[in-house]
Design a protein around this nucleic acid. Sequence first.
DNA 1: CTGAAAGCGCTTACAG
DNA 2: CTGAAAGCGCTTACAG
Lengths: 341, 341
Amino acid sequence: MAAPTRRQPTILTVAEHAGVSRMTVSRVLSGGKNVRPELVERVHASVAALGYRRNEQARSLRPGQRSGLIGMAITNVANPYYGEFVLGADEVVSGSGRGLLIGSTSEDEDKERLLIADFIGRQVEGLIVVPTGARRHLLPAALGGVPLVLASRAVAGVRADTVLVADVQASYDQVSALIAAGHRRIGFLGTMTSVFTGQRRYEGFRLAHEDAGLELDEDLVLVGQQDVESAKAAMESLLAREDPPTAVFCANNRNAIGAVRALLGTSRRKRGARPTALVSFDNFELADVLGIPVTIIDHDARDLGRQAASMLIARLDGADEGLPQTVELPTRTLDYGGTQI
Amino acid sequence: MAAPTRRQPTILTVAEHAGVSRMTVSRVLSGGKNVRPELVERVHASVAALGYRRNEQARSLRPGQRSGLIGMAITNVANPYYGEFVLGADEVVSGSGRGLLIGSTSEDEDKERLLIADFIGRQVEGLIVVPTGARRHLLPAALGGVPLVLASRAVAGVRADTVLVADVQASYDQVSALIAAGHRRIGFLGTMTSVFTGQRRYEGFRLAHEDAGLELDEDLVLVGQQDVESAKAAMESLLAREDPPTAVFCANNRNAIGAVRALLGTSRRKRGARPTALVSFDNFELADVLGIPVTIIDHDARDLGRQAASMLIARLDGADEGLPQTVELPTRTLDYGGTQI
DNA sequence: CTGAAAGCGCTTACAG
DNA sequence: CTGAAAGCGCTTACAG
């Protein structure tokens, strides 16, 4: 038998059942201050008997009340990464007594715009967005004063609290380490150049060359790979060159896994006497047991979610009323022999 | 400068700006039927000028209106799995014009109860739950008629639409294949025995032995491993036996990855002349390149999310008013030499 | 085609 | 300590 959609009891139902006014019920529900203990008792009994649950939508309609909702727009790359990100944000959001309304943009600017409009219509108190890059619907005028935190990526011209990973610094450090270890021809496998993190990681790559006085060979830079298959093909094309790179920097783990697959599918003779060293921005499971020298630039996606949510909650609770801030989360290096030559 | 939290325009603000009544604005907002074209024009102009956005909370307060919210409670195992699950559900839910309210229970029954109470207070139209196993707060009386879909796991005594993976059948098939290939001592690495999927996968394991007339050695059954570290330790203890198993069935990918790590960390001499064959329930990346014979029982977590959401939406839209249904999603086998001996 | 009235479920003053 | 009145932003009849 399908569950009957019977009418939910309201505050009036409870009031009548308990023989008091709606106000008394309301008072009991919000703590029971200034109510005779006997009535508190009676109201609680009625609430239990009727299975009453306060309608939060009606409650939040009153001025000064908050919806208790945070809108979160993520990009849904084919990457387990964002699951962790959501969980971290949820920790903080639910800890503040609020709920997380979530939607995916699939890197589509129109979807992002519609999703944010929908969130605002639903009276979210704040927004956490992994932005596609479009600017207009993130401007204060479009948001109608709803606080915004950007995560993973910044958007030029949008002044908002932002949590980033130390993309440039970490990439710079690891590429510099490769150069210091003697590598002179270093490949780059990256995502679409329009992606903020991709640009930043390439910037670190480029700066490391510049500061070492090493000329960067643009022929070894392959971008636009968004999945493992295309990354594998890109790596194979690098390996097939007359003078292949001795190390490859992978700007995300999709590219790193593609690179690993290409290396494992290429005979040792073909890929040279020495193994090609890899650096992967983003961790991936089993990286340490592949027998391929790889250095991982790791960061905690869950912590990214926590930080973004914390910044937002601080704004909502008035704990932070200063200028928009940008926080860069540090990375951690896991070395499985990647910088050797 | 922090974004000013100015008062949002209401339908009345728009009405005054356009020089019409609130009703006319309301009509225009809901399609513009029976309104003079000129007024439709004027209202749209005012909406744009004021940046007005309809308050969905107020709208849904009216009887007969729906909140447009679906509550989703997941368990947040340390597994990328659930990110995919959420994304699949979101596809369907947002496709129906609704939004996904999400929370994590961390396998905690109390958190689940509170989360569901919160969802109901927020007037969700329906619930998708990966249940911890507690029964009471999932009964129709507790839900007040809000439709429920269980995902991944069933709960004894709770009659609700349920989407499962074909745990028993797939496990049975793969263990039977191991036995047919000549394996006589097969290990089992599993999660907590309280977990529904763990029980089901063990049941398939047991039935395969029974039907083959092969006695199951309880000593080779190790359960309770919830992460890679403990799984690795469990596998090591299996390998250290005098008469180690020739194959091991892993009830989820955490256990499989632990097993892989144990095998790769054990010298070939110690682990015998032939490699230990593995079966993993759940896929994991790079399984095919490890040089370890492994058979994967794969299923699409995103599809699980889609199915759960579809069943719920069908109930909400009245497309399905029959008895609660249970759907078992099929699995796919990826064979990287796991059944060989 | 248009609007004044009533009410969804709740809470904030205000009055006792 | 308790309650009648008013109103949050919207939409559903009802009347013109």
